[in-house]
């Protein structure tokens, strides 16, 4: 068992376990904080796969942005008088059956397919290649995504704004 294996199993265990806690925890704040560990675990897997820049972006965007946004959402949607952070579950049995069937299909497709892999020589750093691709081949989508983000931010601000009486 090499060092790669140990690191992979460690990060995979962190990701899966904290993902389970996100879904099963009765307290939303616990869910949000274990989502932090899930994001970190996925970032570690990215590093293991040689995607260094994506790993950093994962930590910046998900941990620094989306998770904080979610925590603010938790804060803003709890009644101040009646602190009701706990929530229940619905449809556990049919949900479990449906997910079991889907997971079986997904995993069997993933395991039994003959993937054409090649022992690729990963570049030492992917940042240069990624930047070149983004400003040459994918420049149009890149610009469109910038506009999309702008629209989404304006829309979010105008939806969440309290109307003035």
């Amino acid at each position: 068992m090499s060092l790669y294996d140990i690191i992979f199993y460690l990060f995979a265990a962190i990701t899966i376990l904290s993902g389970f806690i996100v879904v099963t925890s009765k307290n939303i704040v616990y869910s949000a904080f274990s989502l932090l560990f899930t994001f970190f675990g996925v970032a570690g897997i990215y590093v293991l796969l040689g995607a260094d820049f994506i790993a950093i972006v994962q930590i910046l965007v998900y941990v620094g942005g989306i998770l904080i946004l979610l925590l603010f959402g938790v804060m803003l949607t709890n009644k101040i008088t009646n602190v009701d952070i706990r929530t229940g579950t619905i449809h556990v049995l049919p949900g479990a059956v449906a997910v079991g069937v889907l997971m079986g299909l997904l995993l069997s497709a993933m395991v039994w397919t003959e993937w054409k892999t090649q022992p690729s020589e990963t570049p030492v750093t992917t940042t240069v290649t990624l930047g070149r691709l983004l400003i040459t081949d994918y420049i149009l989508i890149f610009e469109l995504l910038g506009i999309l983000l702008l629209i989404a931010l304006i829309g979010a601000a105008s939806i969440a704004r309290r109307e003035q009486e």
Partner: peptide, 24 residues
């Protein structure tokens, strides 16, 4: 890696199906 992401996806679907809180 694919199996790991398959597990993560299934956990996510479980959350969407069984939780009642919109934020979860």
């Amino acid at each position: 890696y694919l199996v790991l992401s398959g597990f993560m996806f299934s956990v996510g679907i479980v959350g969407v199906l069984i939780r009642r809180n919109a934020i979860v």
